[in-house]
Design a protein around this nucleic acid. Structure first.
Lengths: 383, 383
DNA sequence: GTGAAAGCGCTAACAT
DNA sequence: ATGTTAGCGCTTTCAC
């Protein structure tokens, strides 16, 4: 059994990889690193073929091999063919680390999202990966769990990994953007999506939140509703504010003043939604329709209503933001604005690629994705 | 390297502390004190601070800086403190690429899943990331989109990126495992989860599929159902086979022969499910209960039933596999086996870590995650 | 306790 | 068309 040469302890000893055939250890107790020559597997731990192996095999130089592999100009067809043949034979796999270190680019793009378990973000990631893989980029995903501190750590980790660019959707907690500004100044391409930061001159993919909110309002008014409640997000959350603004804008045009609308701000927690619902329903003049800035809260409320025998939409109509299978499965179906998250992801990745291509003469672009109102029964007045 | 500006001698030079970030020297020969500060001019745009910058700044060597940063044995407290201070000041971020190349390890684990948009996999990934980030590992996720070819490409890409290990759930298409075997022989730690490959001696995290199927059967029998149908997955898919086997096993114990059970194999496509449903319902002796190996199909069928005015569970009861919010939201609620996907992810990551720590004397481990039957109204006979 | 130098695997500028 | 050499940024061995 190995023991730490510094503190002689055997506890807290961790293997920390191999260094040139030797087992490397790390002593958790005294934070000391050391290596031990493994006598069981001497030297040749796992040898991946390198460009040098091919070169030696063919009796040529490494750079010639490199050129052949990279299909560069100035190499004879004969050698190229030979190199490729031998590479295949020896199962050569280029070491992307070395390549990246040398080229100063990793062909990797870093993505930071609040939570991969939310269908919206899973789809965004999927869209990003589509475009990325089409263009030979890899994707590294981090979750901030809506924590600003974790988000900052994620940014650092990705930058330390030398990702070629950063696609980010801020956590709800995030109100200061120094961590982004720092990287932006260094020239690292950054694309914001969904929850953006308007103070930094980056490319952005945003939802047409104002328009979406307006579309919901227009629809609800057409259905004859007149008294409204809104379950909004945190006050500082732009997407929430825009959706609410769009909603109220239409109402105002229809002669309904914002003051007449019951607005409740929340962190999107189910408990908050239920609390709001209860307070609204017990009002002397309860609202006829609720607009939820996030569909999840609409689902929560509807489930609660159904449990208590409330009639949807007769007693209270619902509309939400963000399409999800849940909206189609719940009864009655929930009217929502579909955000096309895959497209949001695709566009974010494309904006990154455009920035890479444009290089110096690049000017940030903001692209707006238009949502699509999907009307279901939760908001439709039976006639 | 440094020489005395007064006598030009290099001998007898002594360090004499730090002054405002500069290394102070004392020339023993001419008794002269001086400080050195190499000005770091930004030679390139986007210059990230390196250890050489710190070294130059302090007038010491790169290796000393490295030692200080890594908290290695054999360095004076004063130097270490200064290095750390300057590193902070210059916003030094270690280049993980260079570090990885040198250390022969990336502290990155590669994950291959069929589709991140499926809640099950999103949760698995989340579980993996939890454990990984606790242990200082990064995660690189690839989607195979259920394509064998893409899966192979993913494996190659991750190996080329020199991930320290591979966590994989095979695509449904995958029936040959040479791509895995190849890497396994090279000694790359591999952990299978969910859809595993039994022919290769890797660590695995599996669902107790047999037990889950059995639990569903037991429950349905208790509720008084006697005629069953099963919507299974592809014939070669192990998880599907195990679930079906467990289900049939219990039935046999209850005197119901497998031949009496209507089994339909599918690729989990909604159209297939609806087709099967239709054929079952139009039978002279239709089944009383359907067991869906995948909950999604149960949802599809239930929606269809409801559209046609079919009564659930009176006319036909349903039970599925895989917990999802949909199961709770649909009416009646769908009885399912909750698979604890986060735990599956956590265990997969843990098995990887264990393999790293055990190094040479590692024997693959298979860990079984027990599902949990969640009974809802879709399978409960009203009395 | 610290520095010089040799890699890690690959690419590119500069020779020939 | 091919070889030589010098990095990319960091870690580690070997001197002193």
């Amino acid at each position: 059994m190995v023991s730490c040469p510094q503190c002689s302890g055997k506890e807290g000893l961790q293997r920390a990889g191999f260094v040139r055939g030797k087992q490397r250890f790390f002593c958790g107790a005294c934070r000391y690193h050391f290596t031990v020559q493994s006598e069981i597997l001497p030297k040749k731990k796992r040898h991946q073929t390198t460009i040098l192996d091919i070169a030696a095999f063919l009796g040529i130089s490494a750079s010639t091999v490199s050129r052949a592999l990279l299909n560069r100009y100035g190499i004879s067809e004969a050698t190229r063919a030979e190199v490729l043949r031998v590479a295949q034979e020896l199962d050569y796999q280029p070491n992307l680390l070395a390549q990246s270190l040398s080229n100063q680019e990793t062909h990797t793009i870093g993505v930071i999202i609040p939570d991969i378990e939310r269908p919206f973000f899973a789809s965004v990631v999927s869209g990003i990966q589509q475009v990325a893989s089409e263009s030979g980029y890899r994707v590294m995903v981090c979750q901030s769990n809506e924590s600003h501190q974790v988000e900052v750590a994620n940014v650092q980790a990705l930058v330390a990994s030398r990702v070629d660019g950063l696609l980010i959707c801020h956590s709800t907690e995030t109100t200061t953007f120094e961590h982004i500004r720092l990287q932006h100044r260094k020239g690292i391409p950054i694309v914001h999506f969904d929850r953006v930061c308007e103070d930094i001159d980056t490319s952005k993919v945003v939802q047409d939140d104002f328009g979406g909110g307006a579309a919901v309002a227009t629809h609800l008014i057409q259905e004859g509703h007149r008294r409204f409640a809104i379950l909004a997000g945190p006050e500082n959350l732009l997407i929430s504010r825009h959706r609410v603004d769009g909603f109220l804008h239409v109402l105002k045009q229809e002669g309904i003043a914002p003051e007449e609308v019951m607005i409740c701000h929340s962190q999107f927690k189910p408990a908050e939604a239920l609390h709001a619902l209860h307070s609204w329903r017990t009002l002397p003049q309860p609202p006829e329709a609720v607009f939820c800035v996030h569909y999840g809260n609409a689902i929560d409320m509807m489930m609660e209503m159904k449990k208590n025998g409330g009639q949807i939409p007769q007693e209270l109509a619902f509309a939400g933001f963000g399409e999800d299978k849940l909206a189609a499965v719940i009864e009655p179906g929930l009217t929502t604005v579909h955000q096309h998250p895959i497209e949001i992801g695709r566009q974010a990745a494309l904006l990154f690629l455009e920035q890479i291509l444009a290089a110096d003469d690049f000017v940030p672009i903001t692209r707006q994705i238009r949502g699509e109102l999907i009307v279901r029964q939760s908001s439709v007045r039976k006639r």
